[in-house]
């Protein structure tokens, strides 16, 4: 189960458009996440970052455009099929389920395990063995993400930062080839931020996966990202390395507004 990670295929987003009734949430957005890199998607609030994630994980079906992971076209697949291909995600607002950290992490192992209703109900040796093996791996991942001490603690009792990390650990339990992180450090204090940044850096080095990151914390983006795509009003206004993007006039306009009077001043990123 801990086989040497093969290089993940490239995640290719081509001309994705999402329209909700009259609102154009994503307008012809294209970018490519190179294998094994951290690709940040940034932009002001309402720019379409979360919509983009929902398309990648199959929760929204785009009006036009395709998302490909290697040969597989994700836009045709249901969310659980995309998960089975090794695309895992976390949510901006924490979405954990009832039970302990272990229960949540074992949910992350769902796509990798087989035991059905009959085998589990009758506690067939195969099901018991499978559960034990996956539990051991879930515990490893809990250690890796600094949740080892809380493995059997109900999630509802954990502080905010830890719960946020449960989501990350649960996504990792899928043994993803592509990890989608939706604002992994939002609402965290400085210590928690540093810790999560370290964890993301570690897992990337150790597991060799591609990471797509949506984040408002520019410090984190600059430290972690290899490539950055900037969204504004549903359009991709800039691509490049963090340094290039930081100097891009379009980006400055999107974040800070311009003095020309047509650009509305929008909430800048922290």
């Amino acid at each position: 189960m801990t086989a040497a990670p093969a290089a993940p295929p490239a995640l290719d987003v081509r001309g994705v458009t999402v329209r909700f009734a009259g609102l154009l949430a994503l307008d012809d957005v294209s970018f490519t996440v190179a294998p094994g890199t951290v690709h940040a998607v940034i932009g002001p609030n309402g720019a379409g970052k979360s919509t983009c994630f929902n398309v990648l994980s199959g929760l929204y079906r785009p009006t036009a455009g395709t998302v490909r992971l290697g040969a597989a076209e994700l836009t045709r697949l249901a969310p659980h099929r995309i998960a089975a291909l090794g695309v895992a995600r976390t949510f901006q607002n924490i979405v954990t389920t009832r039970g302990t950290v272990a229960d949540n992490l074992m949910l992350g192992r769902h796509a990798l395990s087989r035991a059905g209703f009959a085998a589990t109900a009758l506690r067939l040796p195969s099901a018991v063995r499978e559960q034990r093996a996956h539990l051991a791996r879930a515990r490893e991942i809990a250690e890796l993400t600094g949740l080892g001490a809380h493995f059997d603690t109900p999630v509802a009792l954990l502080p905010y930062g830890d719960r946020k990390r449960v989501e990350l650990a649960r996504a990792l339990c899928l043994e993803p080839r592509v990890l989608l992180l939706d604002e992994p450090v939002a609402g965290m204090n400085a210590a928690e931020r540093t810790r999560t940044t370290e964890v993301v850096r570690e897992i990337r080095a150790e597991l060799g996966l591609s990471v797509v990151l949506v984040e408002h914390d520019m410090g984190l983006v600059m430290r972690l990202a290899d490539d950055v795509t900037v969204l504004d009003f549903g359009r991709a206004v800039a691509h490049g390395t963090p340094d290039e993007v930081r100097r891009d006039p379009e980006v400055l306009r999107a974040y800070l507004g311009t003095g020309t009077g047509t650009g509305t001043a929008k909430e800048g990123a922290a």
Binding site: L107, H110, R123
Partner: peptide
């Protein structure tokens, strides 16, 4: 059988479903 189910893979998937359909489906349920 019921306790086996609840503590096993199907039970966790069902509990996840009722807590958050979205989370369950992106986890592969």
């Amino acid at each position: 059988t019921a306790r086996g189910l609840l503590r096993g893979r199907p039970g966790r998937a069902l509990a996840a479903l009722s807590d958050s359909e979205t989370a369950a489906s992106v986890m592969g349920v």
